[in-house]
Design a protein around this nucleic acid. Structure first.
Lengths: 228, 228
DNA sequence: TCCAAAGTTTAGGTCGCCCTAAATTATGAT
DNA sequence: ATCATAATTTAGGGCGACCTAAACTTTGGA
Protein backbone atom coordinates (compact mmCIF):
# COMPACT_ATOMS: atom_id res chain seq x y z
CA UNK A 1 0.00 0.00 0.00
CA UNK A 2 1.29 3.45 -0.88
CA UNK A 3 1.70 5.90 1.98
CA UNK A 4 -0.39 9.01 2.29
CA UNK A 5 2.48 11.10 1.05
CA UNK A 6 2.82 9.00 -2.08
CA UNK A 7 -0.89 9.15 -2.73
CA UNK A 8 -0.77 12.90 -2.40
CA UNK A 9 1.99 13.09 -4.97
CA UNK A 10 0.11 10.90 -7.44
CA UNK A 11 -3.09 12.85 -6.98
CA UNK A 12 -1.23 16.12 -7.44
CA UNK A 13 0.41 14.93 -10.64
CA UNK A 14 -2.96 13.84 -11.93
CA UNK A 15 -4.59 17.12 -11.07
CA UNK A 16 -1.83 19.14 -12.66
CA UNK A 17 -1.16 17.09 -15.75
CA UNK A 18 -3.93 14.54 -16.14
CA UNK A 19 -3.03 10.99 -17.15
CA UNK A 20 -0.89 11.98 -20.11
CA UNK A 21 1.05 15.16 -19.43
CA UNK A 22 3.99 15.92 -17.20
CA UNK A 23 3.89 17.82 -13.94
CA UNK A 24 6.94 20.01 -13.23
CA UNK A 25 8.81 19.81 -9.96
CA UNK A 26 7.92 23.41 -9.19
CA UNK A 27 4.20 22.97 -9.80
CA UNK A 28 4.14 19.95 -7.53
CA UNK A 29 6.06 21.82 -4.85
CA UNK A 30 3.47 24.59 -4.99
CA UNK A 31 0.50 22.28 -4.88
CA UNK A 32 1.89 20.12 -2.08
CA UNK A 33 3.31 23.02 -0.04
CA UNK A 34 6.69 21.38 0.01
CA UNK A 35 10.18 22.49 -1.05
CA UNK A 36 11.14 21.75 -4.68
CA UNK A 37 14.11 19.73 -3.50
CA UNK A 38 11.78 17.45 -1.57
CA UNK A 39 9.73 16.86 -4.69
CA UNK A 40 12.78 15.89 -6.72
CA UNK A 41 13.83 13.44 -4.06
CA UNK A 42 10.42 11.84 -3.81
CA UNK A 43 9.98 11.55 -7.59
CA UNK A 44 13.34 9.88 -7.95
CA UNK A 45 12.40 7.30 -5.36
CA UNK A 46 8.98 6.68 -6.85
CA UNK A 47 10.39 6.24 -10.33
CA UNK A 48 12.51 3.32 -9.28
CA UNK A 49 9.93 1.40 -7.32
CA UNK A 50 8.62 -1.73 -8.90
CA UNK A 51 5.96 -1.28 -10.05
CA UNK A 52 6.81 2.39 -10.57
CA UNK A 53 3.84 4.74 -10.22
CA UNK A 54 5.64 7.55 -12.08
CA UNK A 55 8.13 8.04 -14.85
CA UNK A 56 10.70 10.70 -14.20
CA UNK A 57 13.31 12.46 -16.31
CA UNK A 58 15.62 15.17 -15.04
CA UNK A 59 14.37 18.64 -15.74
CA UNK A 60 11.23 17.29 -17.40
CA UNK A 61 9.09 16.60 -14.38
CA UNK A 62 6.98 13.51 -13.73
CA UNK A 63 4.35 11.58 -15.62
CA UNK A 64 2.02 8.92 -14.22
CA UNK A 65 2.54 5.33 -15.28
CA UNK A 66 -0.53 3.21 -15.87
CA UNK A 67 -0.10 1.86 -12.36
CA UNK A 68 0.20 5.33 -10.85
CA UNK A 69 -2.74 6.61 -12.83
CA UNK A 70 -4.99 3.88 -11.46
CA UNK A 71 -3.90 4.62 -7.92
CA UNK A 72 -4.46 8.36 -8.36
CA UNK A 73 -7.95 7.70 -9.71
CA UNK A 74 -8.70 5.39 -6.81
CA UNK A 75 -7.79 8.08 -4.31
CA UNK A 76 -9.86 10.65 -6.20
CA UNK A 77 -12.74 8.19 -6.24
CA UNK A 78 -12.43 7.88 -2.48
CA UNK A 79 -12.36 11.63 -2.08
CA UNK A 80 -15.43 12.31 -4.14
CA UNK A 81 -17.47 9.44 -2.76
CA UNK A 82 -16.71 10.66 0.74
CA UNK A 83 -17.66 14.21 -0.15
CA UNK A 84 -20.99 13.08 -1.48
CA UNK A 85 -21.56 10.79 1.49
CA UNK A 86 -20.89 13.54 3.99
CA UNK A 87 -23.25 15.79 2.09
CA UNK A 88 -26.10 13.37 1.58
CA UNK A 89 -25.96 11.22 4.68
CA UNK A 90 -24.51 13.52 7.31
CA UNK A 91 -25.82 16.89 6.22
CA UNK A 92 -22.52 18.58 5.43
CA UNK A 93 -22.76 21.68 3.25
CA UNK A 94 -20.64 21.60 0.13
CA UNK A 95 -18.05 24.01 1.47
CA UNK A 96 -17.40 21.75 4.48
CA UNK A 97 -16.76 18.47 2.74
CA UNK A 98 -13.38 19.00 1.13
CA UNK A 99 -11.08 19.10 4.16
CA UNK A 100 -12.78 16.19 5.87
CA UNK A 101 -12.57 14.10 2.69
CA UNK A 102 -8.92 15.00 2.29
CA UNK A 103 -8.11 13.11 5.47
CA UNK A 104 -10.58 10.26 5.14
CA UNK A 105 -9.65 9.38 1.56
CA UNK A 106 -6.46 7.74 2.82
CA UNK A 107 -8.08 5.82 5.65
CA UNK A 108 -10.95 3.93 4.04
CA UNK A 109 -10.73 0.33 2.89
CA UNK A 110 -11.83 -1.08 -0.42
CA UNK A 111 -14.78 -2.54 1.42
CA UNK A 112 -15.88 0.76 2.87
CA UNK A 113 -15.45 2.42 -0.51
CA UNK A 114 -17.80 -0.17 -1.96
CA UNK A 115 -20.39 0.16 0.78
CA UNK A 116 -20.44 3.92 0.51
CA UNK A 117 -20.85 3.74 -3.27
CA UNK A 118 -23.63 1.22 -2.86
CA UNK A 119 -25.38 3.27 -0.21
CA UNK A 120 -25.27 6.28 -2.56
CA UNK A 121 -26.54 4.28 -5.53
CA UNK A 122 -23.21 4.24 -7.38
CA UNK A 123 -23.22 7.93 -8.13
CA UNK A 124 -21.32 9.50 -11.01
CA UNK A 125 -20.73 13.01 -9.66
CA UNK A 126 -19.82 14.58 -6.32
CA UNK A 127 -21.58 17.56 -4.69
CA UNK A 128 -19.52 19.99 -6.76
CA UNK A 129 -20.37 18.24 -9.99
CA UNK A 130 -17.03 16.53 -10.45
CA UNK A 131 -17.18 13.08 -11.99
CA UNK A 132 -16.41 10.15 -9.70
CA UNK A 133 -13.96 7.74 -11.34
CA UNK A 134 -15.27 4.19 -11.57
CA UNK A 135 -13.50 1.24 -9.95
CA UNK A 136 -11.89 0.33 -13.28
CA UNK A 137 -10.42 3.81 -13.62
CA UNK A 138 -12.79 5.03 -16.32
CA UNK A 139 -14.42 8.41 -15.86
CA UNK A 140 -18.06 9.33 -16.48
CA UNK A 141 -18.02 12.10 -19.06
CA UNK A 142 -20.37 14.92 -19.86
CA UNK A 143 -20.06 17.58 -22.49
CA UNK A 144 -19.51 20.81 -20.67
CA UNK A 145 -17.50 23.99 -21.08
CA UNK A 146 -16.12 26.81 -19.02
CA UNK A 147 -18.63 29.55 -18.38
CA UNK A 148 -15.99 31.84 -19.89
CA UNK A 149 -16.47 30.14 -23.25
CA UNK A 150 -20.26 30.23 -23.34
CA UNK A 151 -22.15 32.36 -25.86
CA UNK A 152 -23.62 35.58 -24.60
CA UNK A 153 -27.34 35.06 -24.57
CA UNK A 154 -27.21 31.29 -24.08
CA UNK A 155 -29.13 29.60 -21.30
CA UNK A 156 -27.04 26.95 -19.62
CA UNK A 157 -26.99 24.71 -16.60
CA UNK A 158 -24.14 24.67 -14.09
CA UNK A 159 -22.46 21.28 -14.25
CA UNK A 160 -19.59 21.77 -11.83
CA UNK A 161 -17.55 24.17 -9.74
CA UNK A 162 -14.07 23.95 -8.27
CA UNK A 163 -14.15 22.22 -4.90
CA UNK A 164 -11.06 23.22 -3.02
CA UNK A 165 -11.88 26.81 -2.07
CA UNK A 166 -14.52 26.90 0.68
CA UNK A 167 -14.70 30.66 0.58
CA UNK A 168 -15.60 30.71 -3.09
CA UNK A 169 -18.08 27.92 -2.53
CA UNK A 170 -19.87 29.89 0.17
CA UNK A 171 -19.87 32.92 -2.12
CA UNK A 172 -21.40 30.92 -4.93
CA UNK A 173 -23.92 29.31 -2.62
CA UNK A 174 -24.88 32.80 -1.49
CA UNK A 175 -25.59 33.69 -5.10
CA UNK A 176 -27.65 30.54 -5.53
CA UNK A 177 -25.14 28.90 -7.86
CA UNK A 178 -24.60 25.14 -7.59
CA UNK A 179 -24.64 22.19 -9.97
CA UNK A 180 -28.04 22.12 -11.64
CA UNK A 181 -28.64 25.87 -11.40
CA UNK A 182 -29.76 27.46 -14.66
CA UNK A 183 -27.71 30.44 -15.77
CA UNK A 184 -28.37 32.86 -18.60
CA UNK A 185 -25.28 34.69 -19.77
CA UNK A 186 -26.39 38.22 -20.53
CA UNK A 187 -23.16 40.06 -21.14
CA UNK A 188 -19.42 39.96 -21.19
CA UNK A 189 -17.07 42.91 -20.66
CA UNK A 190 -14.04 42.93 -22.96
CA UNK A 191 -10.48 42.09 -21.91
CA UNK A 192 -11.23 39.59 -19.17
CA UNK A 193 -13.78 41.83 -17.53
CA UNK A 194 -16.70 40.52 -15.51
CA UNK A 195 -19.60 38.56 -16.95
CA UNK A 196 -23.20 39.45 -16.26
CA UNK A 197 -25.78 36.75 -15.75
CA UNK A 198 -29.23 35.86 -14.60
CA UNK A 199 -29.26 33.12 -12.03
CA UNK A 200 -32.04 30.56 -11.76
CA UNK A 201 -35.51 31.94 -11.96
CA UNK A 202 -34.64 35.35 -10.58
CA UNK A 203 -34.59 38.20 -13.04
CA UNK A 204 -31.81 39.90 -11.12
CA UNK A 205 -28.60 40.43 -12.98
CA UNK A 206 -25.37 39.50 -11.27
CA UNK A 207 -21.83 40.38 -12.27
CA UNK A 208 -19.14 37.72 -11.85
CA UNK A 209 -15.39 38.29 -12.06
CA UNK A 210 -13.49 36.20 -14.61
CA UNK A 211 -11.56 34.31 -11.98
CA UNK A 212 -14.73 33.02 -10.39
CA UNK A 213 -16.42 32.44 -13.73
CA UNK A 214 -13.43 30.36 -14.80
CA UNK A 215 -14.16 27.91 -12.00
CA UNK A 216 -17.68 27.29 -13.22
CA UNK A 217 -18.46 24.79 -15.95
CA UNK A 218 -21.81 24.60 -17.69
CA UNK A 219 -23.74 22.39 -20.06
CA UNK A 220 -25.76 24.17 -22.74
CA UNK A 221 -29.35 22.94 -23.02
CA UNK A 222 -29.01 21.67 -26.58
CA UNK A 223 -26.80 23.79 -28.83
CA UNK A 224 -23.03 23.54 -29.29
CA UNK A 225 -20.28 25.56 -27.77
CA UNK A 226 -18.23 28.64 -28.62
CA UNK A 227 -17.28 32.06 -27.48
CA UNK A 228 -19.92 34.81 -27.92
CA UNK B 1 -2.81 17.43 17.70
CA UNK B 2 -1.22 14.18 18.84
CA UNK B 3 0.03 11.85 16.14
CA UNK B 4 -1.52 8.47 15.47
CA UNK B 5 1.34 6.79 17.27
CA UNK B 6 0.81 8.87 20.39
CA UNK B 7 -2.92 8.21 20.34
CA UNK B 8 -2.23 4.51 20.07
CA UNK B 9 0.01 4.67 23.13
CA UNK B 10 -2.58 6.55 25.16
CA UNK B 11 -5.33 4.20 24.14
CA UNK B 12 -3.17 1.20 24.98
CA UNK B 13 -2.32 2.56 28.42
CA UNK B 14 -5.99 3.18 29.07
CA UNK B 15 -6.97 -0.30 27.93
CA UNK B 16 -4.30 -1.95 30.04
CA UNK B 17 -4.51 0.14 33.18
CA UNK B 18 -7.61 2.31 33.01
CA UNK B 19 -7.41 5.91 34.13
CA UNK B 20 -5.75 5.17 37.46
CA UNK B 21 -3.31 2.31 37.17
CA UNK B 22 0.08 1.96 35.54
CA UNK B 23 0.84 0.10 32.34
CA UNK B 24 4.23 -1.64 32.25
CA UNK B 25 6.66 -1.15 29.41
CA UNK B 26 6.40 -4.81 28.52
CA UNK B 27 2.60 -4.89 28.41
CA UNK B 28 2.57 -1.88 26.12
CA UNK B 29 5.18 -3.43 23.88
CA UNK B 30 3.01 -6.53 23.55
CA UNK B 31 -0.16 -4.62 22.87
CA UNK B 32 1.42 -2.27 20.36
CA UNK B 33 3.57 -4.91 18.66
CA UNK B 34 6.66 -2.85 19.23
CA UNK B 35 9.99 -3.49 20.95
CA UNK B 36 10.15 -2.70 24.68
CA UNK B 37 12.99 -0.26 24.04
CA UNK B 38 10.77 1.70 21.67
CA UNK B 39 8.12 1.98 24.36
CA UNK B 40 10.58 3.33 26.91
CA UNK B 41 11.77 5.93 24.44
CA UNK B 42 8.28 7.04 23.54
CA UNK B 43 7.12 7.22 27.16
CA UNK B 44 10.11 9.32 28.13
CA UNK B 45 9.31 11.79 25.38
CA UNK B 46 5.62 11.92 26.20
CA UNK B 47 6.28 12.51 29.87
CA UNK B 48 8.16 15.71 29.17
CA UNK B 49 5.75 17.28 26.74
CA UNK B 50 3.74 20.19 27.99
CA UNK B 51 0.99 19.37 28.62
CA UNK B 52 2.24 15.84 29.36
CA UNK B 53 -0.27 13.10 28.50
CA UNK B 54 1.51 10.55 30.71
CA UNK B 55 3.49 10.35 33.91
CA UNK B 56 6.46 8.08 33.76
CA UNK B 57 8.84 6.64 36.33
CA UNK B 58 11.70 4.27 35.58
CA UNK B 59 10.81 0.65 36.04
CA UNK B 60 7.28 1.54 37.08
CA UNK B 61 5.65 2.03 33.72
CA UNK B 62 3.30 4.80 32.65
CA UNK B 63 0.13 6.35 34.02
CA UNK B 64 -2.22 8.68 32.17
CA UNK B 65 -2.39 12.30 33.25
CA UNK B 66 -5.79 14.00 33.23
CA UNK B 67 -4.90 15.41 29.85
CA UNK B 68 -3.87 12.03 28.45
CA UNK B 69 -6.92 10.35 29.88
CA UNK B 70 -9.23 12.76 28.10
CA UNK B 71 -7.42 12.23 24.82
CA UNK B 72 -7.55 8.44 25.21
CA UNK B 73 -11.26 8.60 25.89
CA UNK B 74 -11.79 10.82 22.88
CA UNK B 75 -10.08 8.32 20.62
CA UNK B 76 -12.07 5.48 22.13
CA UNK B 77 -15.24 7.52 21.62
CA UNK B 78 -14.30 7.92 17.97
CA UNK B 79 -13.64 4.24 17.65
CA UNK B 80 -16.92 3.11 19.12
CA UNK B 81 -19.05 5.68 17.36
CA UNK B 82 -17.50 4.64 14.06
CA UNK B 83 -18.11 0.97 14.81
CA UNK B 84 -21.75 1.63 15.50
CA UNK B 85 -22.09 3.86 12.46
CA UNK B 86 -20.58 1.26 10.15
CA UNK B 87 -22.93 -1.31 11.61
CA UNK B 88 -26.12 0.68 11.57
CA UNK B 89 -25.73 2.87 8.51
CA UNK B 90 -23.53 0.83 6.23
CA UNK B 91 -24.53 -2.69 7.07
CA UNK B 92 -21.24 -3.93 8.47
CA UNK B 93 -21.45 -7.05 10.60
CA UNK B 94 -19.94 -6.77 14.05
CA UNK B 95 -16.85 -8.77 13.23
CA UNK B 96 -15.99 -6.40 10.37
CA UNK B 97 -16.13 -3.08 12.16
CA UNK B 98 -13.04 -3.17 14.36
CA UNK B 99 -10.25 -2.91 11.81
CA UNK B 100 -12.01 -0.24 9.80
CA UNK B 101 -12.66 1.81 12.93
CA UNK B 102 -9.05 1.40 13.99
CA UNK B 103 -7.94 3.43 10.99
CA UNK B 104 -10.80 5.91 10.85
CA UNK B 105 -10.66 6.87 14.53
CA UNK B 106 -7.54 8.94 13.83
CA UNK B 107 -8.88 10.66 10.75
CA UNK B 108 -12.21 12.13 11.79
CA UNK B 109 -12.70 15.71 12.90
CA UNK B 110 -14.57 16.92 15.95
CA UNK B 111 -17.31 17.99 13.58
CA UNK B 112 -17.66 14.58 12.00
CA UNK B 113 -17.63 12.96 15.42
CA UNK B 114 -20.54 15.19 16.40
CA UNK B 115 -22.52 14.52 13.24
CA UNK B 116 -22.10 10.80 13.54
CA UNK B 117 -23.19 10.88 17.16
CA UNK B 118 -26.20 13.00 16.24
CA UNK B 119 -27.11 10.75 13.34
CA UNK B 120 -27.04 7.77 15.69
CA UNK B 121 -29.08 9.53 18.37
CA UNK B 122 -26.18 10.01 20.81
CA UNK B 123 -25.83 6.31 21.58
CA UNK B 124 -24.30 4.94 24.76
CA UNK B 125 -22.98 1.58 23.57
CA UNK B 126 -21.27 0.20 20.47
CA UNK B 127 -22.27 -2.98 18.58
CA UNK B 128 -20.30 -5.13 21.01
CA UNK B 129 -21.96 -3.57 24.01
CA UNK B 130 -19.02 -1.40 25.06
CA UNK B 131 -19.94 1.97 26.51
CA UNK B 132 -19.18 5.01 24.37
CA UNK B 133 -17.41 7.72 26.41
CA UNK B 134 -19.22 11.06 26.35
CA UNK B 135 -17.60 14.22 25.06
CA UNK B 136 -16.77 15.32 28.58
CA UNK B 137 -14.93 12.06 29.27
CA UNK B 138 -17.57 10.49 31.47
CA UNK B 139 -18.59 6.92 30.76
CA UNK B 140 -22.10 5.47 30.74
CA UNK B 141 -22.16 2.67 33.29
CA UNK B 142 -24.17 -0.47 33.65
CA UNK B 143 -23.98 -3.10 36.30
CA UNK B 144 -22.67 -6.21 34.67
CA UNK B 145 -20.31 -9.06 35.46
CA UNK B 146 -18.19 -11.62 33.71
CA UNK B 147 -20.13 -14.70 32.67
CA UNK B 148 -17.49 -16.60 34.65
CA UNK B 149 -18.80 -15.04 37.84
CA UNK B 150 -22.49 -15.68 37.26
CA UNK B 151 -24.47 -18.13 39.41
CA UNK B 152 -25.20 -21.50 37.93
CA UNK B 153 -28.90 -21.53 37.24
CA UNK B 154 -29.23 -17.77 36.75
CA UNK B 155 -30.86 -16.32 33.65
CA UNK B 156 -28.90 -13.37 32.36
CA UNK B 157 -28.65 -11.09 29.37
CA UNK B 158 -25.44 -10.57 27.42
CA UNK B 159 -24.30 -6.99 27.86
CA UNK B 160 -21.00 -7.01 26.00
CA UNK B 161 -18.30 -9.07 24.32
CA UNK B 162 -14.69 -8.31 23.50
CA UNK B 163 -14.42 -6.55 20.16
CA UNK B 164 -10.92 -7.10 18.87
CA UNK B 165 -11.06 -10.74 17.83
CA UNK B 166 -13.14 -11.15 14.65
CA UNK B 167 -12.79 -14.91 14.73
CA UNK B 168 -14.30 -15.14 18.18
CA UNK B 169 -17.02 -12.73 17.17
CA UNK B 170 -17.99 -14.88 14.22
CA UNK B 171 -17.97 -17.91 16.47
CA UNK B 172 -20.25 -16.20 18.96
CA UNK B 173 -22.51 -14.92 16.21
CA UNK B 174 -22.72 -18.49 14.95
CA UNK B 175 -23.94 -19.55 18.39
CA UNK B 176 -26.47 -16.74 18.43
CA UNK B 177 -24.69 -14.79 21.14
CA UNK B 178 -24.65 -11.00 20.93
CA UNK B 179 -25.55 -8.12 23.27
CA UNK B 180 -29.16 -8.57 24.29
CA UNK B 181 -29.15 -12.36 23.98
CA UNK B 182 -30.58 -14.18 26.98
CA UNK B 183 -28.37 -16.85 28.49
CA UNK B 184 -29.14 -19.40 31.16
CA UNK B 185 -26.10 -20.78 32.88
CA UNK B 186 -26.79 -24.46 33.48
CA UNK B 187 -23.47 -25.81 34.67
CA UNK B 188 -19.85 -25.17 35.37
CA UNK B 189 -17.06 -27.74 35.31
CA UNK B 190 -14.48 -27.40 38.09
CA UNK B 191 -10.98 -26.03 37.71
CA UNK B 192 -11.55 -23.60 34.83
CA UNK B 193 -13.44 -26.16 32.79
CA UNK B 194 -16.12 -25.24 30.27
CA UNK B 195 -19.49 -23.75 31.15
CA UNK B 196 -22.75 -25.12 29.83
CA UNK B 197 -25.56 -22.81 28.86
CA UNK B 198 -28.84 -22.42 27.11
CA UNK B 199 -28.82 -19.66 24.58
CA UNK B 200 -31.85 -17.51 23.80
CA UNK B 201 -35.06 -19.43 23.38
CA UNK B 202 -33.45 -22.65 22.18
CA UNK B 203 -33.42 -25.53 24.66
CA UNK B 204 -30.13 -26.77 23.27
CA UNK B 205 -27.23 -26.85 25.66
CA UNK B 206 -23.96 -25.41 24.55
CA UNK B 207 -20.53 -25.77 26.16
CA UNK B 208 -18.25 -22.75 26.20
CA UNK B 209 -14.56 -22.78 27.10
CA UNK B 210 -13.48 -20.49 29.93
CA UNK B 211 -11.40 -18.28 27.63
CA UNK B 212 -14.39 -17.46 25.52
CA UNK B 213 -16.71 -17.16 28.48
CA UNK B 214 -14.30 -14.69 30.06
CA UNK B 215 -14.88 -12.34 27.17
CA UNK B 216 -18.60 -12.25 27.75
CA UNK B 217 -20.21 -9.94 30.26
CA UNK B 218 -23.81 -10.25 31.38
CA UNK B 219 -26.44 -8.38 33.34
CA UNK B 220 -28.60 -10.49 35.62
CA UNK B 221 -32.34 -9.82 35.31
CA UNK B 222 -32.82 -8.66 38.89
CA UNK B 223 -30.80 -10.49 41.50
CA UNK B 224 -27.28 -9.75 42.64
CA UNK B 225 -23.97 -11.25 41.64
CA UNK B 226 -21.68 -14.02 42.82
CA UNK B 227 -20.03 -17.22 41.90
CA UNK B 228 -22.27 -20.29 41.84
C1' DT C 1 23.09 34.31 -29.69
C1' DC C 2 23.60 35.21 -25.07
C1' DC C 3 22.46 35.56 -20.37
C1' DA C 4 19.51 36.43 -16.38
C1' DA C 5 15.71 34.35 -14.27
C1' DA C 6 13.36 30.27 -13.48
C1' DG C 7 13.62 25.71 -12.61
C1' DT C 8 16.12 21.79 -10.93
C1' DT C 9 19.47 19.02 -8.56
C1' DT C 10 22.95 17.90 -4.99
C1' DA C 11 24.73 17.90 -0.42
C1' DG C 12 24.13 17.75 4.17
C1' DG C 13 20.94 17.69 7.93
C1' DT C 14 16.43 17.31 11.12
C1' DC C 15 12.61 14.89 13.24
C1' DG C 16 9.56 11.10 14.53
C1' DC C 17 9.24 6.51 15.31
C1' DC C 18 11.07 2.31 14.98
C1' DC C 19 14.98 -1.46 15.51
C1' DT C 20 18.83 -4.76 17.81
C1' DA C 21 22.37 -5.76 21.07
C1' DA C 22 24.29 -5.10 25.31
C1' DA C 23 24.18 -3.37 29.93
C1' DT C 24 21.73 -2.53 33.93
C1' DT C 25 18.15 -2.91 37.56
C1' DA C 26 14.31 -5.10 39.95
C1' DT C 27 11.84 -9.33 41.63
C1' DG C 28 10.64 -13.38 43.85
C1' DA C 29 11.85 -18.25 44.85
C1' DT C 30 14.86 -20.67 47.45
C1' DA D 1 19.65 -12.65 51.86
C1' DT D 2 21.07 -14.27 47.46
C1' DC D 3 20.88 -14.75 42.76
C1' DA D 4 18.93 -16.30 38.37
C1' DT D 5 15.49 -14.55 35.54
C1' DA D 6 12.62 -11.15 33.90
C1' DA D 7 12.01 -6.41 32.99
C1' DT D 8 13.93 -2.25 31.71
C1' DT D 9 17.16 1.08 29.93
C1' DT D 10 21.10 2.73 27.14
C1' DA D 11 23.73 3.05 22.99
C1' DG D 12 23.95 3.18 18.33
C1' DG D 13 21.38 2.89 13.99
C1' DG D 14 17.77 2.92 10.06
C1' DC D 15 14.11 4.74 7.26
C1' DG D 16 10.71 8.03 5.31
C1' DA D 17 9.67 12.47 4.45
C1' DC D 18 10.87 16.79 5.03
C1' DC D 19 14.24 21.11 5.17
C1' DT D 20 17.98 24.91 3.53
C1' DA D 21 21.82 26.48 0.94
C1' DA D 22 24.43 26.30 -2.88
C1' DA D 23 25.40 24.69 -7.48
C1' DC D 24 23.92 23.61 -11.64
C1' DT D 25 20.77 23.39 -16.09
C1' DT D 26 17.41 25.09 -19.17
C1' DT D 27 14.78 28.58 -21.34
C1' DG D 28 12.98 32.70 -23.36
C1' DG D 29 13.47 37.50 -24.29
C1' DA D 30 16.61 41.26 -25.66
Amino acid sequence: MPSEAVDDYLKAIYEIAGDEGRASTASLARKLSVAPASVTGMLQKLAQRKPAPVQYQKHRGARLSEHGKLRALEVIRHHRLIELFLHRVLGYSWDEVHDEAERLEHAISEQLEDRIAERLGNPEVDPHGHPIPRKDGSIPTRRDMSLLEAFVGSETTVSRVSDSNPEMLRYLAGLGISPGTKIKLTGRAPFDGPLTLEIGNSRKKQALGPTVAGEIRVTPPLNGKGKG
